[in-house]
Design a protein around this nucleic acid. Structure first.
Lengths: 153, 153
DNA sequence: TATTGTTATACTCTATAACTATA
DNA sequence: TATAGTTATAGAGTATAACAATA
């Protein structure tokens, strides 16, 4: 006998979608992680460089973006700076604050890794024809647009 | 003037889709990571428990699933075993091998975290109506079905 | 007094290398 | 000889706590 199903919570109904999202998330993260590792970068540091590509955040903003403690960010940036990937610059408006910017080597590296990431993701979307790719992109963007504000990158 | 675009490589054309996939990946991973952290589990250990939910892999299989070295897996499983989440059992067919199984506490925890993950992802898919959710799930599943074999979980 | 960032310390995760037991 | 797993060791990532400088 089929159980009556009166008002299941929303979460339960979308198990299949949730599983697909989670699996896709791991598959994509694995690619990015592999590309980062090939250049000696953790996934977190890849994300930092990606953010610096078009922004000049202060330390605390970076930590907030990535959900890390400020001390963790201090260490990450210190190591990245030693490697010549990023640089610290005083914030002109608040003398307590420190901005983080890409060093030339970091800028070159992030562009190279971005190209590698696009190549690595191409086979994943290959099974979808152009129209389906547009649909997928639109659905994901609608899903992401409604978020709190953090932009995952 | 619109540039003629003769045979761009596939990767370049899908920059928007790639960005959406990557952002979605980070947003989802952040949710899972947060839920795991609330129970003192790393994302990797969450994935291990998820795998053990319906499989009884040996150590080396677990390491392969997750792209880790076997020594790394030894340490992860040793710590998880000390916490009563998993157990090691001799493999009946190969006396060199060790199977990993869920301990009762681990089984309870993984079900609880799964429910929390479904709840956490519900707001993300909330902007999509039921038909769009079905479309998104179908597109993701077609994308994932064509992969090499690893199943991200 | 609150905020920004750093330093000190400790634990987890991860990898490389060397080892034991079994195949 | 090759494979499965563990132990030893080291480095990166992360958090908690205490501190200095600025707002």
């Amino acid at each position: 006998m089929k159980r009556s199903s009166p008002r299941r919570p929303a979460a339960v109904r979308d198990e299949g979608l949730a599983d697909a999202l989670v699996t896709a998330s791991f598959v994509i993260a694995a690619q990015l992680s592999r590309i980062g590792a090939e250049h000696g970068l953790s996934l977190t540091l890849c994300r930092v460089l990606g953010i610096l590509r078009d922004r000049r955040p202060r330390m605390s903003e970076l930590a907030d973006y990535l959900g890390l403690e400020k001390q963790t960010m201090s260490g990450l940036i210190a190591r990245a700076e030693e490697r010549g990937l990023v640089a610290r610059a005083p914030n002109p408006e608040d003398r307590r604050a420190t901005d983080v910017i890409l060093a030339p080597a970091g800028a070159r590296l992030v562009e190279r890794m971005r190209a590698e990431a696009l190549e690595a993701l191409a086979p994943l979307v290959a099974p979808l024809d152009p129209a389906d790719r547009r649909r997928l992109q639109a659905l994901l963007q609608r899903m992401l647009a409604a978020r709190d504000g953090a932009d995952g990158r």
